[in-house]
């Protein structure tokens, strides 16, 4: 059974069909990249899966259970972790406290009023920071971190609840090229070791073609191609989309 099954998602804004019947699945341990030119419907699709937007038609199923239109908070509790295009962490907390806050939320201890939070889930938080290479920063305020480190902290928080599915909106946006590949390799390692399903959107093609297991290409709200990296790379329609028809025709000759 797939971790995420998306079927016939459609969404229109006024008269504009942002998404017109999109279906795909993501399995455990799989990295699926959602790509396409600007305005293809990536963000709409992503935000529907995440629960921020309600679709006009179609269903989203998580591990077989229908979750269409549930708010982000409920999705988190059902096993969806996510990172944002502009990384969001808690700036006034230390790095360790950030991860502890995520763990406390996952354990539903948010409303404990008396026991100091510092003593809760310390080891697990430390362990997550080690896994993401952030252990040396544990005591620093999150507001002092370099952006690449903020992204890794965000990743540690997103996987703290041991989600089934990780949603990453442009995980490498705003990062230097070397940092980008390091981050996506880290994601891939975690995916494999935890059996995590990952759905991500991405603009940088080296990240997509170097690390995704499968790729779904959107254009004009429709899926124009989907398959493994090699198939997508060879697909004439995709080449036309990204390189223009002239080059694509030349490539075929």
């Amino acid at each position: 059974m797939s971790v995420l099954e998306v079927e016939g998602l459609a969404k229109a804004y006024g008269g504009v069909q942002a998404l017109g019947g999109v279906s795909f699945t993501v399995g455990a341990g799989e990295l699926l990249a959602l790509i396409g030119p600007n305005g293809a419907g990536k963000s709409t699709c992503f935000n529907i899966v995440d629960g921020q937007i309600r679709p006009d038609r179609g269903t989203v199923r998580l591990a077989g259970r229908e979750v269409t239109g549930l708010p982000p908070r409920r999705m988190a509790r059902l096993g969806v972790g996510r990172t944002f295009q502009i990384a969001a962490v808690f700036d006034s907390l230390t790095v360790l406290e950030n991860v502890q806050a995520a763990l406390i939320a996952a354990r539903r201890q948010t409303f404990a009023l008396w026991r100091p939070a510092a003593t809760i889930a310390r080891e697990e938080a430390q362990h997550l920071l080690e896994q993401t290479g952030m252990a040396d920063h544990a005591g620093r305020p999150a507001s002092e971190l370099a952006y690449g480190d903020v992204k890794r902290l965000e990743l540690a928080m997103a996987i703290a609840s041991e989600p089934l599915l990780l949603l990453m909106d442009e995980p490498t946006a705003g990062m230097a090229p070397a940092e980008r590949l390091a981050l996506i390799e880290l994601v891939k390692r975690l995916t494999r070791s935890r059996g995590l399903a990952v759905l991500f959107t991405e603009h940088s093609m080296d990240v997509v073609f170097g690390h995704a297991d499968r790729v779904v290409v959107l254009a004009g709200g429709q899926i124009v191609a989907s398959g493994d990296v090699d198939a997508i790379r060879a697909d004439p329609q995709v080449r036309a989309l990204y390189l223009g028809t002239g080059r694509a025709a030349g490539g075929r000759a």
Partner: peptide, 12 residues
């Protein structure tokens, strides 16, 4: 600090 992140972690 970030209600967006808090919601995404499941904090009501």
């Amino acid at each position: 600090d970030s209600s967006l992140r808090a919601e995404a972690l499941g904090i009501p």
